[in-house]
Amino acid sequence: MGTFHHGKGDLHGITVVVDLKDSRLFVGRCDTVMPEGVVLLDADMHDEAVAADGTDPVPKATYLENALKFGVWKKYDRIVVPTEDVLSVRRLGDLAH
């Protein structure tokens, strides 16, 4: 029992990792995958080339290990990741297996 949103694709409502061709990735709840891009809700963005708060940059794999444990703090309520930038789209939960 619950609300469903049919017609938005298999990944609708699923927390996904959108890996980009550059040093960035996004983790967020997938709304839709459109020809022009992946629409994410409540998403965080990580850039492994950028150090935060004077610390060393964090590799994508390390960031994802932490994201898998508890989730992510959102930076964006809604964002469209352009298709031409996307390397892969995976379910975050699949990283547990």
């Binding site: 699923i14 508890f70 939960g93």
Partner: peptide, 11 residues
């Protein structure tokens, strides 16, 4: 112990 949403989805 904590189970977040992404470990519930699709299971």
């Amino acid at each position: 112990w904590f189970m977040p949403r992404h470990l519930i989805e699709s299971r």
